[in-house]
Design a binder for these strands. Structure first.
Lengths: 154, 154
DNA sequence: ATTGCGGATGCAATAACATTGCATAAATGA
DNA sequence: TCATTTATGCAATGTTATTGCATCCGCAAT
């Protein structure tokens, strides 16, 4: 998320533009894998060692309520956030919990379920579950090596 | 989940069939809305007041690892479980956090993303976000009442 | 029915995750 | 620069989840 966007967002909502807000949103947008609050806190402390964990919690909650970022559901309980709010999908690794974004325009044409659900639906996203490349690779450890020997690099 | 299934599952995995396991799985299958651990603990204590919270945690984790039940991702941090592991989708209320199941065979034909994702995909489910009937109804509170006056029952 | 084994349970302690109250500090607009 | 308003940091507290260990219970062999 470019600096300019962060400024605009704060001004639009009459929120003081603080260094903490800049740096937290910045850190979030640099993380493609839906970090937890503590992941972000670690990142942010590199540049601002005195920032408080509470502040990170608060900033994320504030912007999530504004719809600027999103809190994503993840089976490993611990809040996770993402900076993208436009439609996209998720790849979830059942082994390590890694969650990556997936963009695929052909998935934009899902027929929304009818009103009989009782829900007024605004958007959707698909969660694909499986094994990420890191976790599926070591799945055949007994295989004899051929010439394209496996990189076991975790 | 019928009693017989619970027995079968335990025998298949050589797990002692305890009263606690029976009652926790039973309680989960009676809850259509993806309860938290404490939701289930409350339910279960009606019939078994001395059951420990820790035990409920452990039973759910055990069976989730076996694939008998599933831990679902939910933006409100607190683990939630569901007893259905066959493909189905979710309706999530952004207001109250309620999450309901949606079955719709026409959503079974999603084209899986290719191997270029690096993921080996096993299954997917769609999360539809919006407002549930309870939360979308009071959304126009300034409206003059007509003959179909609103039930304000939260 | 009794016994013995291994795993499950309950409890208490602890850890991990999250929120709140309040004093201080910083951003904004005049 | 000053006043106002809100954010931040800190410490305390609350909530959610896990762990170690003594005891209990399901289960199978007797």
């Amino acid at each position: 998320m470019p600096e300019a966007d962060i400024e605009r967002i704060c001004r639009q909502h009459s929120l003081p533009l603080t260094a903490q807000r800049r740096i937290v949103l910045q850190a979030l947008s640099l993380r493609p894998t839906h970090p937890t609050v503590d992941d972000l806190w670690s990142d942010v402390r590199q540049a601002m060692p005195e920032i408080s964990r509470t502040t990170v919690y608060r900033i994320l909650e504030t912007f999530a309520h504004l719809g600027v970022i999103r809190k994503v559901g993840h089976p490993d309980s611990a809040a996770r956030y993402e900076s993208r709010t436009s439609r996209h999908h998720h790849l979830l690794c059942l082994q390590c919990g890694r969650m990556e974004d997936l963009d695929d325009a052909s998935l934009d044409t899902i027929r929304l379920p009818g009103l009989k659900t009782g829900f007024q639906i605004e958007d959707y996203s698909i969660q694909f579950r499986g094994l990420c490349s890191r976790c599926s690779a070591p799945a055949k450890p007994r295989l004899k090596r051929r010439k394209t020997a496996g990189r076991t690099k975790a």
